[in-house]
């Protein structure tokens, strides 16, 4: 029993937790931006799959790692454009279009994968991002190793939390994004196009989701597998609610979730097979549902979330 507690005080546990949190941070920020602008993006799971493949494939074809990240982001934006075109100006059901985009992005990814690599049995590997210890900071006691011996993409995730929070709350653009999610009529009255702001937000958010997917193939692992996103996108949707649509709280939620995930993996090894391993694997999903129940009562959804906007409509 002692061992189960000791895990929490090992640096390797927290290094793993931060690594597991990284793709969730990207994708949760992405979903948060979409929802703040009033658009629920259920394309997240598929967009992460497409991003995971696009980034990895770019590197596999000889591109460098950052080009891979850029390509993943562009692929994400393309799906964001599709999603937002159908849901914003055409006002189609965000649930149906989101599921459609997930199915399309996933199946297109698998199709292209099979086309490009027809006969492979074991997925080819790339040289992924390497850990890059921050000089000085990585030697800090307690947090140094966990926070500052990560790969550059993890640092980017943390920087983006600050950038998104600053952008949403301190810039006119951020104000416009939040306003179209709360009171689009008032934004239109200011002479700003609700359609443009919402579409832009969904495209930017989708780009982040795709980078979240790319983290898995280019930083956490070094190859692309089928079903590799495995529900992470849906977890991120829960994290946005858990974080009450605020970047800082969402970051906290992602780290808590990831710590729990890292912990269950270690408990699994510790339990020595007495409890079926599937029980441990279920815990993160069950925890997400539990978190939703806990926050549901005081969740304040953006008022215009899932409400299509028509110019001149009251």
């Amino acid at each position: 029993m002692m061992d189960a507690v000791e895990i929490l005080f090992t640096a390797s546990f927290w290094v793993a937790a931060i690594r597991i949190a990284s793709p969730l941070i990207f994708a949760t920020l992405g979903e948060l931006i979409c929802e703040r602008a009033g658009v629920l993006n259920l394309g997240i799971e598929g967009i992460m799959t497409a991003g995971a493949f696009a980034g990895w494939f770019t590197v596999y074809m000889g591109g460098d790692l950052w080009t891979g990240v850029l390509v993943a982001a562009l692929v994400g934006m393309a799906f964001g454009l599709l999603h937002s075109f159908l849901t914003v100006p055409l006002g189609l059901s965000q649930h149906v279009v989101g599921i459609g985009v997930t199915l399309l992005a996933t199946s297109l990814t698998y199709y292209v994968y099979r086309l490009a690599l027809p006969e492979v049995t074991s997925p080819p590997k790339i040289e992924p991002f390497q850990p890059w210890p921050v000089p000085g900071l990585s030697k800090l006691p307690v947090v140094g190793e966990a926070l500052f011996t990560q790969t550059p993409l993890t640092y980017l995730a943390f920087v983006l939390v600050i950038v998104v929070a600053w952008g949403l709350y301190r810039t006119p653009l951020g104000l416009a994004v939040r306003a179209v999610g709360e009171n689009p009529g008032a934004v239109e009255a200011q002479g700003i196009s609700v359609t443009a702001v919402r579409m832009g937000a969904v495209m930017a958010g989708s780009a982040l989701m795709a980078i979240g997917g790319a983290f898995l193939t280019m930083s956490a692992f070094n190859s692309f597998f089928f079903n590799m996103i495995n529900g992470r996108g849906w977890v991120c949707i829960a994290l946005v609610v858990f974080g009450s649509w605020r970047p800082g709280k969402a970051l906290l939620g992602a780290i808590l979730f990831a710590a729990f995930d890292a912990y269950q993996i270690r408990l699994q090894q510790l339990s020595g097979g007495v409890v079926p391993y599937q029980v441990f694997l279920m815990l993160p999903y069950a925890l997400s549902i539990l978190a939703l129940i806990v926050v549901a009562r005081r969740a304040t959804y953006p008022k215009a979330l899932m409400v299509p906007y028509q110019k001149g409509e009251r």
Binding site: L82, L86, L108
Partner: peptide
């Protein structure tokens, strides 16, 4: 690749909801 079927099914969903609209 037989995944073309999945692509067609997903595409038909999006084209159909657009057409109905």
């Amino acid at each position: 690749p037989s995944y073309i079927a999945d692509v067609m099914v997903a595409t038909s969903l999006l084209t159909m909801v657009t057409a109905i609209m």
